[in-house]
Structure formats: C-alpha cells, structure tokens
Amino acid sequence: MTKVMNTMVAKPTAVKYSKLSTQRKAYEWVMRSLLYLAAALTTLLLLFLMGYILVQGLPNLSWEFLTTQESVLKGTYGILPAIQNTVYVVVVTLLVVLPLGVGAAIYLTEYATNHKLVTAIEFATETLSGIPSILYALVGMLVFCQVLGLGTTLLAGSMTLVIMTLPTIIRTTQESLKTVPQGYREGALGLGAGKWHMIRTIVLPNSIDGIVTGCILAIGRIVGESAVLMFTAGMSHTLQDFGSLEGLLRSSGGTLTVALYAYAKESAKFDLAFSVAVVLLVITFCINLAAKLVGQKLRKK
C-alpha cells in the first residue's frame, strides 16, 4: 500500500493536452477511444451473454426441473440426475486429486533437493495444464475405460479428471506453501520436530487457504468440463443408484454440461439447454465469488 501511495504522490504531472502537436493530439484521441471501445465491447459482451442466457433460460427453470428426472410418461423434464452426477464427479475427483496434488506440492517445496528433478516435475505439471481436454478424453477412454476395464462410468470420468485437475491443485498449493514464513519452519525444526511433524502441524495449517482456493478452481474446471465426461462417463440421463458400492463403481451418466450439450445438439430442446446454462452460470458465479473471498482472506494474512 505504501508503495502505491508513494508513486501517487511522486507521479509527475502529465503534459497539458492543449500544448500537444496535432499529430500527438490525434494519437491521443485515437488511442483513448480504442481503449474505451475495447473495454466497452468486453463489458457489453458479458452483459449480452448473461442477459440472453437468463432471458432464454429462466422461464423454463422450475423447482420441478431441478429436482426430478425426465419422465416420458408424464412428459416432464428434469435434471436431477445430471446434478447428482456432477456432484459425484466433483467429490470423487477431489478425494483422489487432493492428497496427490498436495503431496506433490509438499514434495516440491519441502523435500526436493535435486534441482533437475524439481524442474522436471514442474515441466510435467505445466505440460499437463496445457493439454486440451479432448486429448484427456482420448487417453481416459483408452486407459481407464478399456485397459483398466472400468467401462464408460462416472468413476472412469473422475479418474481422467484427476489427471486434468492435478496441475491446478499442485500449483496453488505450492504458491501458498511458499508464503509460509521460513522462520516458522526453522522454529519447529529447532524445537526438535521432525519434518513431517512440522509439515503437519505448522506448514499445512498455515497454507490451508491456498489449498481451498485450489479446490475451488478445480471444482470450476470439473463442472465446466464436457468433452472428457462425454466420452468417459456417458450421456444417460436417468437417476443412478449411488446407494451401493456396485452403484458407486458402475454408474454412468451425463453431468450438467453434457446434459446441456445433449439438449442442444441431440434433442434440439433449446429452451431446456438454456435452463441448464442458467444453472451452470449460477454455479460459475458462486465458484468465482468463493475463490475471491478465500483469496482476500489469504491476502489479509
């Protein structure tokens, strides 16, 4: 803050506009209008997107739509299965990716001494985060559905998403581990704590906000993902049985994004697709808000 204040005070006053040559005046005018134009365009784009989706989607959005499944007999539509599947995928993916990602980040920041190894692992995570989802879909289909014999199931989809979200978790955890003051570590080690004891009692509790941010970002990616889940988890839209172990392992079905795609592209029920889009918008908004709140808490520290 003080730095900002200083520069505000020290900022030299700009030249007077009226004293500029015509050429520079023109430059100034053109550039300023371009800037405002671009910003206005971006803002209008967002307003249009939100407005259009809400106008198209809200009329069909009802409690019934959210809490029932599609019924051919009654002629009603519902996305409860899609919501359940989304929750399943989010929970299972996080359960697997969190320990893996946090563990990897701890290894990178606390244990690893070999510089080449750290570079290799960081290069690997960067590569993973650059790979497009359609390639994850291909590999997930090959490895989890076929080679490991999971079939087209939500479980196979979640495992594929684990690979996809791993870089996010590793990076955010690493960032927040780095913010824990070195003195804390030295203090703990000086008192005779072992390294794991120190990590468990000092380092992790102090970086929990960053880990939570990573989770939120990962949830955002999982909820928004469609290509991977379409090919690895299937597209059915009937309620799955998550009550039994068999059901947990064998269920397959589409998440919200896949349901949207199916409504729009396969059954041409555009009004329903827009209703799903509204639900997705609301989720995205909540995720962004949550990430921002946690981020603020982190910065205050």
Partner: peptide, 11 residues
C-alpha cells in the same frame, strides 16, 4: 472478466 473465464465452453 473472471466470470467470462469460468463459463463452461458448452454455454
């Protein structure tokens, strides 16, 4: 802008 980034591609 952040919201724009988070909107799923199918939308």
């Amino acid at each position: 802008v952040d919201l724009l980034a988070g909107i799923p591609s199918v939308v």
